[in-house]
């Protein structure tokens, strides 16, 4: 078939196989997108077709009802308190567990895999489901929200922390071991100084996440500012909802800013 006199000319910039993979992937992505759009009746075009409608509806939120702000503060502080308490407790609880899910500390394969499995399951549970269950168990209020946030945060923290421990420099622990230190001394002198700033930083990060999450929890009665949103939506009092939304937004921005500055200073 190939004539030795004929020069080989590549037909395409890419090998045939790459081209095929990319084409298939694109068809898959777009096909799945079409199915999704039909199923959820959410063609982006709709958004532009209904834009007049949308602006009118959004208009119901404005202007925000600033007189309502006074009633927001106490619940807002409750949200912050929930986030502070749950992040602190979750960080403390996560420390022993992250040692169990770090490959270089927990060398027992079965224990390691079991802990990983449990952790992965916990991480799939949405915060709202946790809140629903704990509100059912402990009744409406802050306590249920705090417990839900603690478990939610542990899922995030243990993963981040165990990854940090897996990435530490094991050389100093060898030096401590060689000078006759016992296991606790090795952890305290060689491991803790390497991971502590990271751990505090993760604690702050989880605090940011928990502030957002605790907005959701209030919707099912687990305390915090979300409860107010729920009531006001039921009253169709949209200007008040907008007030809450703006206040939450500002608080989240401020807290994120402070927390990220602190975290920069740490690492």
């Amino acid at each position: 078939m190939s004539n030795p006199n004929e020069k080989y000319v590549p037909k395409s910039l890419y090998p045939t196989k790459t081209k095929l993979t990319i084409t298939l992937a694109l068809v898959g992505i777009i096909g799945f997108y079409l199915i999704s759009s039909i199923q959820t009746e959410s063609f982006i075009v709709n958004f532009f077709l209904k834009i007049g409608n949308v602006t009118e509806l959004v208009g119901r939120f404005f202007p925000p009802d600033w007189s309502y702000a006074q009633q927001v503060w106490s619940k807002l502080f409750e949200t912050i308190h929930m986030a502070i308490i749950s992040s602190t407790i979750a960080t403390l609880i996560s420390i022993p567990f992250c040692l169990l899910t770090a490959r270089n500390i927990t060398t027992n394969k079965y224990l390691y895999n079991t802990m990983r499995f449990i952790l992965n399951i916990i991480r799939t549970v949405p915060d709202i489901v946790l809140a629903v269950v704990f509100v059912g168990l402990f009744g409406i209020g802050v306590f249920s929200g705090i417990i839900a946030l603690i478990i939610f945060a542990i899922g995030i923290l243990v993963k981040l922390m165990s990854e940090t421990i897996e990435s530490i420099d094991m050389n100093p622990s060898e030096a401590i071991k060689a000078s006759g230190g016992n296991t606790l001394q090795i952890i305290w002198y060689a491991v803790v100084p390497q991971v502590l700033p990271q751990f505090i930083s993760f604690g702050l990060y989880v605090f940011e996440v928990n502030i957002r999450a605790s907005v959701v929890l209030g919707l099912v009665g687990a305390g915090g500012v979300g409860q107010l949103i729920n009531t006001q939506i039921n009253f169709l009092n949209y200007p008040a909802v907008m007030t809450i939304v703006i206040i939450i937004f500002v608080v989240v921005v401020i807290i994120d800013y402070i927390s990220s500055k602190l975290r920069e200073g740490l690492v």
Partner: peptide
């Protein structure tokens, strides 16, 4: 990023 998704959802539910 600062908007929790639930707040966005509340606004969009009212809108569409």
């Amino acid at each position: 990023r600062a908007f929790p998704e639930v707040l966005l959802a509340i606004i969009f539910v009212a809108a569409v």
